[in-house]
């Protein structure tokens, strides 16, 4: 089943119109798969999720909107501290994101370009290799998942990730609801009553919105970005040669972060 962006948007749109939850969206997407999931066939089979980011279209303002939407969607607190901060999606300049793909005379505009960064959902993930409890692992569809129920907080995955994609809950994230100095910057935490928060002592990171994909919705950042600028972020199935991600990777030049390490990131940047 090919799910490209347009289909996705249509489905998402219809389900929003109907005002009902994920069930409907999913049934429209693929009749029978909901039934299959209840018969122990996961929703992940036969897919290879990837994301393409058009750096020309993603300006800093838009990235910030995506970050805010992502962090609200997943109840990520604003801890206001470089040491303790938790982030799933954030911004970084080209210079620091692609340290080996530049030189002294690279165009000024590119070197200082702000790009969105998050977990790369690598095909060959070192984080999953090192986890002693399989709290983080690779799903069939390529998503690197975290099971916060099982994480013991050893932080080996944070040492293993070459992209700094992982954050640790150094304290209880819910303290932002009571701590006087943090209350102000987190007025409505937890913002999404349909998603949990985390507890202290576990690692967390971007999950490619696995919970939204299960309902036939695109990741939140993709939805927000495309709402403002068409095809600024493209999400889809690499296993499908007809998918929009495959088409655009075939047509435009793209790069990935630190390809020399062999982790095979699934985040592609159009430069």
């Amino acid at each position: 089943m090919a799910v490209d962006r347009r289909q996705f948007l249509k489905v998402a749109g219809i389900s929003t119109l109907l005002g009902i939850g994920g069930k409907t969206a999913f049934e429209i997407l693929s009749p029978g798969r909901l039934e299959a999931s209840s018969q122990k066939i996961p929703l992940t089979t036969g897919k290879r999720w990837a994301m393409v980011i058009d750096t020309h279209k993603m300006d800093e303002g838009l990235i910030e909107k995506c970050i805010e939407a992502c962090h609200r969607e997943h109840n990520v607190p604003n801890l206001d501290s470089q040491k303790e901060e938790v982030k799933w999606l954030w911004k970084e300049d080209y210079h620091h994101t692609f340290p080996n793909q530049q030189h002294r005379f690279t165009m000024h505009d590119i070197i200082h370009k702000i790009v969105p960064v998050m977990c790369n959902h690598c095909s060959n993930p070192p984080c999953c290799r090192v986890c002693p409890t399989q709290s983080t692992w690779q799903r069939d569809d390529g998503i690197i998942m975290m099971d916060p129920h099982r994480c013991i907080g050893c932080r080996f995955c944070m040492a293993a990730c070459p992209f700094g994609a992982r954050s640790f809950n150094w304290g209880d994230p819910r303290r932002v609801m009571t701590d006087d100095s943090l209350k102000e910057s987190n007025p409505d935490f937890p913002q999404n009553p349909e998603y949990p928060t985390r507890c202290k002592g576990v690692v967390e990171k971007c999950n490619f919105c696995a919970e939204r994909l299960a309902k036939g919705l695109e990741p939140k950042c993709v939805e927000v970005a495309n709402d403002k600028k068409e095809a600024a972020m493209i999400f889809g199935d690499l296993a499908d040669p007809e998918s929009e991600v495959r088409t655009i990777l075939n047509e435009r030049y793209s790069i990935r972060r630190k390809p020399e390490l062999g982790t095979e990131p699934n985040l592609y940047f159009l430069i």
Partner: peptide, 17 residues
């Protein structure tokens, strides 16, 4: 003492990896 969730330390043995 370095573990974030020391009460779950037995997970290392329960889910050997």
């Amino acid at each position: 003492v370095d573990l974030g969730n020391p009460v779950r330390i037995m997970n290392v043995i329960m889910y050997p990896t």
